[in-house]
Measured scan of single mutants.
Amino acid sequence: MASQGTKRSYEQMETDGERQNATEIRASVGKMIDGIGRFYIQMCTELKLSDYEGRLIQNSLTIERMVLSAFDERRNKYLEEHPSAGKDPKKTGGPIYKRVDRKWMRELVLYDKEEIRRIWRQANNGDDATAGLTHMMIWHSNLNDTTYQRTRALVRTGMDPRMCSLMQGSTLPRRSGAAGAAVKGVGTMVMELIRMIKRGINDRNFWRGENGRKTRSAYERMCNILKGKFQTAAQRAMMDQVRESRNPGNAEIEDLIFLARSALILRGSVAHKSCLPACVYGPAVASGYDFEKEGYSLVGIDPFKLLQNSQVYSLIRPNENPAHKSQLVWMACNSAAFEDLRVLSFIRGTKVSPRGKLSTRGVQIASNENMDAMESSTLELRSRYWAIRTRSGGNTNQQRASAGQISVQPAFSVQRNLPFDKPTIMAAFTGNTEGRTSDMRAEIIRMMEGAKPEEMSFQGRGVFELSDERAANPIVPSFDMSNEGSYFFGDNAEEYDN
């Protein structure tokens, strides 16, 4: 993207840094990872977990959730003011799984939030270390993106479920800051804005008074975040219109849905970061690795190297396929839920299948599930090659597409044709070009129609051997075009429920 120079890199967003050079960025990201790792080690000690239990991804998720809940100030305040039966607002906890007599047992633990905050700050040299908290939120978000298709949420806001490739980060909490905003897809931002506008339509006082002023500035800020994701002048001009509207209503909703559809071809720039579970960072720190000293990046080879040398386990339900569970977590670790499966298959070195073909449910185990038949197995999170994460949407291309997802959002900077089903997408653009945004709409449609099938995206960008740390010898991959490109292809993934 041309304006790259004016933006802070995501590592800076990730670490609240002012302008830093590459070495400083690597050190501050490393410091953040160190903090998460030290916190995780301490929690495993508190909970008396064995090494194996500490490497269980379900335990990692519970521990991450506990610290996120302990620092969720708004919710904590709300819980104190609106006490609900049987919930102690000062405590947080969740299921911890232990191996007892050759069987997995679930144990519900409860801790004072104050105590968890103390352990977290102690692991982070006394700081609140917001960057580390956001990092864990993005890992949870990436896992949700890989596990669930947001059909219901899309339909509720009037969008087409086939636009799911635009929904990265749709389950990120509001408090995820600049680093969170960077990884949100165009569809996620559109959905947040539509929800806001709908509230304004239904509630006369939404934009009024002292609160209304705050609401208005939040609305304009979200519009600017979305505008910054678009790469064409016409899309940005249309966002200006939406932002400046005196009284946002149905016309703005129409414009936003139009823009979301246009992003299936004229893709937005959305950041991709490899955020790993805390149970990967903990053992690495415990083994003596100093992330701050060595430096770390979320968008280069580092996460690949770390996963190459990590042992992570997962509980497996009786009829689940461990290899499929591994694929789910591998995609989440690489922030690749909406990437082209052919690119992923090449990088991973084994075939990556669409969601609907995987015999696996989510990673988390519900409290009512029976533990008797639970097994555990090693997650295979290694890769054959590594590639640089991208934040450009890439230019655009036609490809055989599917009944489910009709476009992709690249996660890796790797040369390819970008699949999208042009006739299906263009069919949504018939007729409606009147109104105050008509010239911009016409211009956007013209650009979409001009998108050429034979153009290559990320020209000359390749993948790298894991021994090639400096990215000196790019390998331009070859793809098996007979395979499906979309992950949520004609899909039956479970729906995400809060």
Rank of each mutant, 00 (worst) to 15 (best):
G185C: 07
K31H: 08
Y281T: 10
W207V: 07
E380N: 07
R389G: 02
V109R: 04
R8H: 00
L110R: 08
E380G: 12
S274A: 05
N319S: 12
A472G: 08
G462Y: 09
N321H: 09
P477R: 00
N483S: 02
L47S: 07
E64M: 09
A442Q: 00
S269M: 09
Y10I: 14
E14C: 10
D88I: 04
A70D: 12
I316D: 05
T130S: 08
G17M: 14
T430R: 15
N144R: 01
V190E: 03
K113G: 00
Q398I: 06
V109E: 09
R65W: 04
H135S: 06
N319T: 14
M189W: 06
A233E: 01
Q20C: 00
E252R: 04
Y40F: 10
R156S: 09
M239R: 01
M137T: 11
I444K: 05
L328P: 05
K325P: 02
R246L: 03
D128Q: 04
T437W: 00
D160R: 03
G86F: 10
S377M: 15
K90R: 15
S335A: 15
L133K: 08
S170R: 07
M137V: 10
D255V: 10
S478G: 07
M191C: 11
P354D: 06
M32Q: 01
P95D: 08
S376C: 11
V408P: 02
E443F: 01
A179H: 05
N319C: 11
M222V: 03
I25A: 02
A129G: 15
E64W: 05
V463H: 06
G93T: 07
Y111A: 01
G126N: 13
R361S: 03
N224A: 10
A366E: 07
A218F: 10
A131E: 06
V329N: 02
E454L: 15
E434M: 08
E339V: 09
R38P: 08
N142L: 07
T157D: 03
L466C: 02
D16C: 08
K198W: 04
Q308I: 15
L307M: 14
S3N: 14
G17K: 13
R55C: 12
N76M: 12
S69A: 13
A471H: 01
M189P: 01
K90Q: 15
E18C: 07
Q149E: 05
N59W: 04
P354Y: 12
E484V: 15
V242G: 06
N76E: 13
A428N: 14
P474H: 01
Y78R: 05
R389W: 10
I253N: 10
G30I: 02
W104I: 12
S402N: 01
S28N: 15
I444Q: 13
E220K: 09
D51I: 11
S314E: 07
L133D: 13
F420N: 11
D203C: 06
A234E: 06
Q168R: 07
T188I: 07
L154M: 13
R382F: 02
R441I: 11
P318Q: 11
E115P: 05
P354N: 11
V363C: 14
A178E: 02
Q231H: 14
E455S: 12
R246A: 07
M238C: 08
E292S: 10
G404D: 13
A411K: 00
S478I: 02
G187P: 08
Y385D: 10
K227R: 08
E380D: 12
M32L: 03
N473P: 01
I365A: 05
Q58C: 05
L328V: 14
M159T: 06
Q241I: 11
L264Q: 15
Q399V: 13
L259V: 15
S383E: 01
E210P: 01
M167P: 02
D160C: 13
E380W: 13
R391I: 04
R121I: 10
Y487S: 01
E434H: 12
G93C: 01
Q327L: 14
F291A: 11
D145R: 05
K98N: 13
V363G: 01
N247D: 06
R75C: 04
S3Y: 15
W120H: 09
G394V: 07
L264G: 06
M481E: 06
G5E: 00
S353R: 15
R175S: 06
F458S: 10
G435S: 06
R342M: 13
V100F: 11
Q58L: 05
L79T: 09
E434G: 06
P283A: 15
E254L: 06
A263W: 03
A387L: 00
F458R: 00
M448L: 15
L47I: 11
I138Y: 01
A442E: 03
A179I: 05
H272F: 04
Q364R: 00
F479D: 01
K87F: 00
F258V: 07
F464A: 03
N202F: 11
N395I: 01
S478V: 09
E495W: 11
P248E: 04
F464T: 05
E73K: 11
K305F: 13
Y78C: 07
F346W: 06
I425L: 05
S9V: 00
V190L: 02
L306A: 12
M331L: 15
G394D: 06
A179Y: 02
V190W: 00
R384P: 09
Y281E: 13
P283M: 14
S407F: 00
S84D: 00
N395P: 01
A237R: 06
V343C: 08
I197D: 12
S457F: 01
N144L: 06
P477T: 08
S274N: 12
E495I: 02
A178V: 12
L341K: 10
S402G: 01
A427G: 15
S69E: 05
T151A: 14
R55L: 13
L226K: 07
G169W: 06
L379A: 02
S28G: 14
I41V: 12
D51Q: 13
N395S: 14
P318E: 02
F258P: 04
S69T: 11
C223I: 09
E369H: 14
M159I: 12
N417W: 14
M239V: 15
I265D: 01
P453L: 13
T23D: 00
H324K: 01
D302T: 03
S486G: 00
L358N: 08
Y10K: 12
R204T: 04
E369I: 06
N492R: 15
R389Y: 03
M1P: 10
I347C: 14
M167A: 02
V186D: 01
R221M: 08
A373H: 11
A336S: 11
L166P: 02
L341Y: 10
S69L: 04
A336E: 01
T350W: 11
S359H: 07
F346C: 14
D88V: 00
V363L: 15
R391Y: 06
F206K: 08
R441Q: 05
N370G: 02
S407L: 09
I257H: 07
N334S: 13
R216H: 12
M481I: 07
F304V: 15
G200F: 09
Y487V: 00
V109T: 12
N492Q: 06
M481P: 01
Q4F: 15
E339P: 04
N124T: 04
A179K: 11
F39N: 12
V183D: 08
A27D: 00
S176C: 11
L193N: 13
E369C: 06
Q149A: 03
R436F: 04
L358M: 11
F39K: 05
S407G: 11
P95T: 05
A284H: 11
T146Q: 05
N334R: 00
N432Q: 14
G249Y: 09
G30P: 01
A178G: 06
R38C: 08
R389L: 00
L61N: 10
R348H: 14
R26V: 01
N202W: 14
R208V: 02
S165L: 01
L341R: 02
E375W: 09
I265W: 01
R243Q: 11
R118S: 04
D491Q: 01
P318Y: 08
F206D: 01
S269K: 07
T15R: 00
R8G: 04
Q415Y: 02
T6G: 00
V463G: 10
T171L: 06
D88W: 00
W207I: 01
Q12R: 15
W207G: 03
F230W: 14
E220Q: 13
Q4K: 04
V285T: 08
K227T: 10
E107M: 07
N309W: 02
Y52T: 15
A373K: 12
L133P: 02
E73T: 15
D302F: 04
W330F: 08
G185Q: 10
E81H: 10
E46C: 12
H272D: 09
A178W: 02
F489I: 06
T134A: 13
A131I: 04
S392K: 08
R75M: 08
I138M: 13
V352D: 05
Y487G: 00
N397F: 15
N21P: 10
Q122V: 15
Q311T: 15
P89S: 13
T92V: 02
E107N: 13
M32W: 04
R361M: 01
K214I: 13
S407A: 14
R150A: 05
A471P: 01
C223P: 08
V329E: 04
